[in-house]
Nucleic acid binder design. Structure first.
Length: 476
RNA sequence: UCCUCAGUAGCUCAGCCGGUUAGAGCACAUGACUGUUAAUCAUGGGGUCGCAGGUUCGAGCCCUGCCUGAGGAGCCA
């Protein structure tokens, strides 16, 4: 008989239907009740075993992790926690799971321990929930942009441009590192390398996306990016996924409108499509927070927090205004900030948190930062001091989006690159966009894992990507 | 990279002031029980106390270095 997925089967009215299900044992209680999961839903199906009708040898092989094929009939459950259950008529063990060796137990495991067994943690309800939502968000991102007619551009993963200044890069080479060829100056001779020059993994697809926007008007990238920064935080990965839309004829306001609309669309999509997963994750988060001191706890449960974010318009204000607010805050007057507030400085985490969590208590978009602390490609304002940048700050995770209106004026861009020591020769192709039919345009970058963090209520970014890469960790 | 904390059984953790043979719960094995919801009860096996040095009559405990993990900071998405 054909297999029925547990997700479908749980929708049925139990009327003694004959069914076949397959899945993995979560628990086997009382020698009678198998909790079976097949990954089609985070819910388990209860299989009822009449232990007098099956050989003891067979039942002894059923442990947490054992994969089974069950044929039986679907009946109303006598127990309290489920509507229906399957009375087993035949049990076939598809794969044994040696109980002494299998690390997953029917109990709470720490996330740190599960990270060490990332190849098995996918089998837990927590990670099924997280990665099902991750999957949904990836789909929803494409849907959002495709519905608007944006063209998906595949930016290269290996690149020879190292001028973006977005962070330390991973080098890509086929040279024998034990015998590196050198030129007459004693430098590495990259002409003998695979590409005939030095190559790296990309840190951003933005510059390539700009090339696309100069043709299609509206494009986006969605791919992996790599940063070799020695960052050891719950918000950074060496390999992460980024969404980078780039739009011709958009100014900074259009850019912010799009970013806000996108984030709200994605959060709403999650709420609509993953209620069970969110419910489970919310419960998980509440229990995690019981361990924390009162003042570090989230003020809002996960689902409420997500709903709140889509209801309220994000707070928009300039960097300069934000500095004023911080300077006049009672926090500052009581000298509670570790870093003194002063126009021109980059905002520290404590300042961003104050604005988002204390002052406005909702997502905040900051604009028009001092040019000294922002990238070379951002459009300069008339005041000569600031650029058309915008950062979207979210409660709990800080910067989720960074974007800007780009400098479309050739002379100003050229001059800025010179000032910041960026090679105009190597970047000729980027400058060409401003030489040949330049237009005002804007774009932003969304860190996919930070979005997943926010939507799942997880607290460490290593738990929202299946196989995290961080300094000193490249397992699996 | 910097600061703080941690590393003891498969997992989560206790281990007093440095003192005999290092403990508990869960997991696992065996048995009992059989409508359970992380079943329950009984019994049992299970340890290079992160690694390397040092102090001491004696170190899981004190000191030094290193490794790993977590939290915070920086860099950022």
């Amino acid at each position: 008989m054909k297999r029925t997925k547990i997700k479908d089967l749980l929708q049925w009215e139990p009327q003694n239907q004959e069914v076949t299900v397959m899945g993995w044992t979560r628990t086997f209680r009382n020698n009678q009740f198998i909790s079976l999961n097949d990954g089609s839903t985070i819910q388990n199906l209860q299989i009822v075993v009449d232990y007098t009708k099956f050989p003891e040898e067979l039942l002894k092989r059923i442990h947490t992790g054992t994969s089974l094929k069950i044929e039986g009939i679907l009946v109303p459950s006598q127990g309290k926690n489920q509507k229906s259950e399957v009375l087993a008529q035949s049990i076939e063990i598809l794969g044994d799971c040696p109980a002494e060796e299998y690390p997953l137990q029917p109990k709470k495991h720490s996330l740190e321990f599960l990270r060490e067994i990332a190849h098995l943690r996918l089998r837990t309800t927590t990670f099924q929930s997280v990665f099902r939502i991750r999957n949904g968000l990836a789909f929803a991102i494409h849907q959002f942009f495709q519905n608007k007619g944006f063209v998906y551009i595949h930016s290269p993963i290996i690149t020879s441009s190292d001028a973006e200044g977005a962070g330390e890069m991973f080098q890509v080479t086929t040279l024998d590192l034990n015998n590196v060829p050198k030129d007459e100056n004693g430098k590495v001779d990259y002409s003998q390398d695979f590409f005939g020059k030095a190559a790296n993994l990309t840190v951003s697809g933005q510059l390539e996306a700009e090339l696309g926007a100069m043709s299609f008007s509206e494009v986006y990238t969605f791919g992996p990016t790599f940063r070799a920064e020695n960052s050891n935080t719950p918000r950074h990965l060496a390999e992460f996924w980024m969404i980078e839309p780039e739009m011709a004829f958009y100014d900074l306001n259009d850019n912010m409108d799009l970013a806000e609309e996108m984030l709200k669309y994605l959060i709403e999509y999650t709420l609509k499509n993953y209620p069970e997963e969110l419910q489970f994750l919310q419960q998980r988060q509440l229990e995690e927070e019981k361990q924390k001191p009162q003042n570090e706890r989230n003020t809002m449960p996960l689902i409420e927090k997500l709903e709140f974010c889509i209801k309220e318009p994000f707070e928009r204000l300039s960097y300069t205004k934000a500095i004023e607010i911080l300077e006049n805050s009672s926090y500052n007057k009581k000298k509670k900030f570790q870093f003194p507030v002063k126009w021109g400085m980059d905002l520290q985490t404590e300042h961003e948190r104050y604005l988002v969590e204390k002052e406005f208590q909702k997502p905040v978009i900051l604009t028009d930062y001092p040019k000294e602390i922002k990238a070379f490609y951002m459009r300069q304002n008339e005041d000569g001091k600031t650029v058309r940048a915008m950062d979207i700050l979210f409660p709990g995770i800080g910067e989720i989006i960074g974007g800007s209106q780009r400098e479309e004026r050739y002379e100003l861009l050229y001059q800025r690159m010179k000032e910041m020591n960026i090679s105009t020769e190597e970047m000729y192709w980027y400058l060409d966009t401003r030489r040949f039919g330049t237009v005002p345009h804007s774009g932003f970058g969304l860190g996919f894992e930070r979005l997943v963090l926010f939507c799942t209520g997880m607290s460490n970014i290593r738990d929202v990507i299946p196989f995290p890469r961080t300094p000193k960790n490249c397992a699996f």
